[in-house]
Each structure stands twice: as structure tokens, then as C-alpha cells.
Nucleic acid binder design. Sequence first.
DNA 1: GCATGCCACCTGTCTGGACAAGCCATCGTC
DNA 2: GACGATGGCTTGTCCAGACAGGTGGCATGC
Lengths: 247, 247
Amino acid sequence: MTRRHEEIADELRRAIGDGSYPVGAALPSESELAAAHGVSRGTLRQAFGTLQSEGLIGSRQGARRVVLAATPSQSFTELRSFAQWARAGGRTPGGRVLSAHRGKATDAEAAQLQLAPGDEVLHVLRIRTLDGDPVLLERTVYAGWCAEAVEALPDDCESVTQSLYDAVGLVMSHGEHHLDAVPAGTVDARELSVRRGSPLLRVRRTTTTAEGRPVETSDDRYRPGTVVFTVRNSVQANPLARTTPDH
Amino acid sequence: MTRRHEEIADELRRAIGDGSYPVGAALPSESELAAAHGVSRGTLRQAFGTLQSEGLIGSRQGARRVVLAATPSQSFTELRSFAQWARAGGRTPGGRVLSAHRGKATDAEAAQLQLAPGDEVLHVLRIRTLDGDPVLLERTVYAGWCAEAVEALPDDCESVTQSLYDAVGLVMSHGEHHLDAVPAGTVDARELSVRRGSPLLRVRRTTTTAEGRPVETSDDRYRPGTVVFTVRNSVQANPLARTTPDH
DNA sequence: GCATGCCACCTGTCTGGACAAGCCATCGTC
DNA sequence: GACGATGGCTTGTCCAGACAGGTGGCATGC
């Protein structure tokens, strides 16, 4: 670790987490901390910026920074894979492929994956478990160019994201998630052990590489009660919203 | 607007939005743009940072920045009030208070609002509309210390967040949202014009001031089909996730 | 006692410079 | 033609300094 601003952010995160700076307390000023760590104010501001984007601290011009929360939220903002997310919460993730077959992309799929209509894609239906209980049914469409790598994975692959990274260096670095609620269909009901028509949380997502190349698009349905999505945010985290609310 | 970095971010956002830089295209280098705008590289990086946190562009050391998406996501990350969010999407927000009464905080409510059990709180049941259609039923609990300000608001107040800011300078600057799916209850069904038991997207949220003082906690239920929550994210947006995924 | 004005302090913004690390097209070699 | 090395360009990181504008506490005056 040679990046000073990350070191400092880590240290502050730890100090906040262990209660050295309780929620509501004011942090030392930039100049003090910069001097204490032997870095310039700019580097320290970079570290503060990281914590701010995590929702741990808030700031106002003129006043000292304030601790808003003790632990970073385990939210989308980290774009975790299901497996990473599960383990971060101390649960054991599992999974199994129910079906996988190649086919031609529909117009909608092609548009989302930036392919030509009719290009080959890979459809995968996968059930995901947490401590053995089914919680999530994934209907994923992979772009043809990464189908082979996905097919090579074992049926009970624990973390697809991790495995694709290990196998072919593919990094899912960007995603867009749409959330709504839908009634369980016949397949949903059977696989998730719920009654047909009962509410499911649906997350439609498209994941792309760092270059903006779409990798997969998926319709994920979560059984309620077992998984709750958490989003923590603050006006400070986004410069867009920092201004006074407009009329 | 005297902040150069915001001006530049706005300009770039517009250029990306109108297709001057299509999705997938590379942007000019920092040095070029800095020279073109007559600012230092630092200021330009600040503007780029804003766009990056919005998910519009991505970057890798050594390569030019790339356009990832054409429109900023209207997501939680901005912690918009319902009214602001609606208007940003070109819709007309509305609303009406169905009932409001003071009461004693339950243990759960007290914990979430950081009050003592039994302290006075204000319960408000509010329906929210978009272009006249009911889309959201809010069950909100306000801490006693801001009850008066809330009661003073008109029944059909369009933006509670805005009004509280105008009236008493209260700024909702931080929030935590929990999302899941629930079946519609009797009241939900009647007010949102759906069948009982049909799926609703539930968002339980707690909002606090910049100092971390909880203002309200709410159970919001959205009628599906009309509102979709969108979260866009990238590993770049959050330094926590920038490292290689761990096993 | 209370309001007011002042002032030290702190954060936000911006500059101009420097070096490290990564990317990629070009060139030369095999 | 395929392959590998090179070097220019670009982004990431960091520094030292400057000024503007907001905050909050203290002292003054009513």
C-alpha cells in the first residue's frame, strides 16, 4: 500500500469504527490531521472525500467535519457480487444452475447488451442460496463473447464475478440496477418456495466492464424477508445535490 | 455560479447528454480541457470526479476517460425528496395528508429516532401522486421536536423537505433506506388502487440532519409499474471496492 | 440578560508544479 | 507477418501556497 490517502482513510475509518470518534463528534481539522500524518492538506482532503462518499462523515464549510455513522453501509454502492455481499454479512452463499442454453438475442436483449439483434447470447437460470435457503432466482443473459467462460464454470459456482475474474480477467466494474416489486410466477414460486403471486423484489441489472462494454443483463428476484437492500446516502456524497433544494 | 468546477461539470454533462461524446467514446485529456477552459488540472479533475460519481464516465490510469452513460441516474445517491425527484423526471408531484396524530413512541420508533421510549412523536399517513395518479403511501413518524413544524404545513404540501427547509431551516442531509417487497394491506390497496395482496415495493427510511440527529422514520410503499428505483454504480465511485475482489 | 459585532478558525476552491504508473501505437527485429 | 521493446501521452498521486466564504465563540455595548 503506497497510497497515503488510502492509508489515512483506513486509519480514520478504523478510528470511527472503534468509537474513538463517536457518532455526532467533531473530527480534528484538516490542518491538524495533515500535520499529524505528515502530508499536505490536499492528500488529507482526498482521504476525507472517501469517507464522505461512504456516508461516514459529513461536512459544512466553516465547521469541523462530523461523524454521521460508525460503519459503512453494505449497499449497492460497492457493487458487490452476491457472494461477496453474503460473506460480508457473515452468511454462507451457495448456488446452482437450473438451466443454461444458447440462443439468439431478442431486440430488447441486444439493445441492452449493445449487440446486433440475432447475435448469440447465453441464457442462464440460476438459484442462489444463503445458509442453504433459496433467496434469489437469477435469469441472466450473457453476451456471446463471454458465453464460453461462463459455460466453463461449475454448476454450483459460488461467485460468478470472482470466477470470471480469475479465469479470464473479466472485471465487472459498472452496473445499473432497476428495482421494483412483482408477483411470483410459477417458476419463481416453485424455486423460491413461496406461493404464486406473493411479492418478490425484482432487480433488473446490466453490468459492464470498465470500458463500458456490457457483459450481462439479468432479472433477479428476491424472496422477501430474507434479504433487505440497504442504501445509505447523504447530500454531501454527491456534489450535485449539495446546493440548496430548488423550487 | 462562481464555482468553475461545477460550470465545467455542467458543460461536460450537457455535451455527453446531447451526443457530442457518445457512449463508448473517449474524452479529451485533462490537459487539453484544462487549457481550453483556462483552469488548472486540479479544477478539471474535480469536475471529472463529479461526473464519475454520477456514473457518466469511467477512467483507468494511462488511458483516456470513457463515456459510460448519457444520462445521470435519478437514484438514491442524491437523496432527493419525492417532489424533487418527480420534477427532475418531468412529472408533476402531488400529495395529501390522510391522517395525522400525536402519540407516544414505541420502543422501535424511539430507537430509530434516538428518543426515549414514550417520548412524543407525530404519526402522519400521506398519499403521494405523480401526474395525479397515486403511486406512494407514506407512513411517517416525526420526532417530537419537529412535530409542530410539520403540523403547520398544508395538507396538500407538495414538498415536505423543501417546506421544512423554508420554514425552520431544517435540512435533511443524510438517510438510510431499506428496500424489500410486501403484499398490499387493506389500507394500501384502497389508497393505491390495487388489489389486496398485490406486490408493493417497500422503502423503510430514516432521515437525519447533518449533525446526525434523526428527524423522521418512514414506511413508504410504492405501487409497481409507475415508479422504478434506479441505482447506478461503479467500482470507481467507491474506493472501498476498487481493490481486487477477495476470496 | 440579551443582542450585536468582531475575529480566529475551518472548509471550499483554485493554482502550478512534480513524479509515478499505466496504456498504446509505432518501430524495429526475428 | 508475428512478436517484442520503446517512448510519448494520459491519468493517479502528492505538495505548498493562496484566497474566499461560512461558523461559532467571545467581548462589547445596550
